[in-house]
Simulated scan of single mutants.
Amino acid sequence: MISNPVFQVIAAFFAIAGFSIVIEVPKKFLVYSGFVGAVGWAVYLMFLDKYGIMVATFFGGMAIALISHIFARIFKAPVTIFLIPGILVIVPGAGMYRTVYQIFLGEQGLAADYLLQTIQMAGMIALAIFAMDSVFSILQNKKWKSRRRLPYFWIK
């Protein structure tokens, strides 16, 4: 039952909604932050088997950042209200645990492998968030530029 993707997505929704309560996300946004986490996990699972963990982490992060930006604009709220809880589903906490565990066992080579994978996953998450923030920043800047009136001698 745990390997069932539908069950995992539903569990991700409730886990993120619960985590959102802990970090005091406003009550009216709890369902939406849970939805962000569930969609991010669903995208992660879709890419995981075919393309591997790094690509899955990147596209999961992209989905989470995209929906967080859309919800932030719809509900006139900060992006972080949706992004921080939503990103929790793909944060490589298990990788850090495995790294420390292998260090305690004295397996330095295995610990280094887990640490490298964890750092790469964190980098994919950061890259995905940065890319989506850049897209929305460019779109917002173009929208602003198209509204302002420039004197004719400034336009080349």
Rank of each mutant, 00 (worst) to 15 (best):
V39W: 00
V25S: 04
P78C: 05
V89T: 11
F82R: 07
P78M: 12
G61E: 11
F75W: 05
V9Y: 02
A72G: 12
F75T: 02
G52Y: 03
G34L: 04
V9I: 15
I70G: 03
V36W: 02
L48V: 00
H69L: 03
W41V: 01
M46S: 12
L83M: 13
L48R: 05
I90G: 09
G18I: 09
F71Y: 15
L88A: 10
A72Y: 03
I53V: 11
P5C: 13
I84Q: 10
K50Y: 08
V43N: 05
F47L: 09
A38N: 07
I67N: 06
R73D: 11
D49P: 04
I81T: 14
Q8Y: 00
F7R: 10
V55M: 07
A63E: 05
H69E: 15
L30Y: 09
L30M: 07
I10T: 13
E24H: 14
I87K: 07
K76I: 05
K50P: 00
G18A: 13
V89Q: 03
W41S: 02
F58S: 07
I81V: 15
F29L: 11
L66M: 14
I21K: 14
V31N: 06
I21V: 15
G86N: 06
A11N: 08
T57N: 13
M54I: 15
F19V: 09
A63K: 01
M62L: 13
A72L: 04
F71L: 14
A77Q: 04
T57K: 12
A42N: 00
I70C: 03
K50N: 12
S33N: 01
F75H: 14
I53F: 13
G18P: 08
V43I: 12
V39H: 02
